[in-house]
Design a protein around this nucleic acid. Structure first.
Lengths: 163, 163
DNA sequence: GGGATAGGTCAGTTTTGTTGACTTAAATTT
DNA sequence: AAATTTAAGTCAACAAAACTGACCTATCCC
């Protein structure tokens, strides 16, 4: 794709006037969501830096810790990235002793993934500031609102295809 | 020389037992947030591909459209990225006629940023599927819950430093 | 005039994602 | 039993979007 697909026709006059269409589009929540996530994922960065890991490693450690015994295929489906992209970070986590693989007891082609003790500790350390942030964001919220937030976040996900 | 970064000490036994610490850490919301954002930002990708742009361009067009006349410094502060990183995508958006710059009327060192008509249209087209997703996630939610979600998302942001 | 500020640019690096092609071992199907 | 499919790993090349550090220009302010 070239970068010249854009409408270079006519004179691109700057628009200083406010938008008219605003009723139909919920810009407010879009922005709130952007800022919330931006700051939410920035929390663990300082901890990650000490181990020489990045956010990709964080996600892997998190999900393996949450679902001990999940397979590589499960993880790929969860993260929605390619096998090659996962392989890089997963290998580093295994080599560093945070995650172990065990051949599947039934299907021995599978590699079941488990956190080690240090893997679990790392996952916990990374989750802690995020959890504190969430608790702070819920301050003063009723049980009904808390449930509503969960339902909202769950509703933001893609509807999974039939299987 | 072996890599000494990770805790290679002892035997890294896989842990199949569930966590004990779980009471204190809100893993559920952490995951819901991850999945929600993952799918939320995937919406505009198809539209972006047609213009040869990426998510970085999306964010720039969005904020310039929402705050016409904002300066480059404002944008840097909003996106929390470096000047060099912004420069790349901003230049492409200007060259393609989606954004215009105007020297600040008071401080002529500043470059005030405005969307062009096509810039506004692009921002709107990108926001539309996201807005529809938000509306779907809010289905059946009371006004109280909707306000609660906004308060929650706002509460997830960093507290801004004094100025 | 001199320093600080807003913005732009050059050059190189890192992280994290992508495609495509190929291999191995195990399971499944014919 | 042979053929095919599947789970996982690997090699290579590439791209998006971030980073650092150095340096330049124009303008503002003291």
């Amino acid at each position: 794709m070239s970068r010249q697909t854009g409408p270079k026709t006519g004179k691109p006059e700057p628009l200083a006037t406010p938008m008219e269409d605003t009723e139909t589009i919920d810009f407010e929540i879009i922005e709130l969501f952007f800022f919330a996530y931006r700051d939410f994922v920035s929390d663990p960065d300082a901890i990650l830096e000490k181990s020489g890991f990045g956010r990709a490693h964080h996600r892997v450690v998190h999900f393996v810790n949450r679902n001990p015994g999940m397979t590589v295929a499960d993880l790929l489906d969860t993260l929605k990235i390619t096998k090659q992209s996962l392989a890089r970070v997963l290998k580093q986590l295994i080599d560093s002793g945070y995650i172990r693989q065990v051949a599947g007891p039934e299907d021995r082609r599978q590699r079941k993934l488990y956190p080690t003790k240090s893997g679990r500790e790392l996952a916990l350390a990374l989750a802690e500031p995020q959890s504190r942030r969430i608790e702070r964001a819920f301050e003063g919220a009723s049980a009904q609102v808390r449930e509503g937030v969960k339902a909202f976040l769950g509703g933001m996900r893609d509807r999974k295809k039939a299987d």
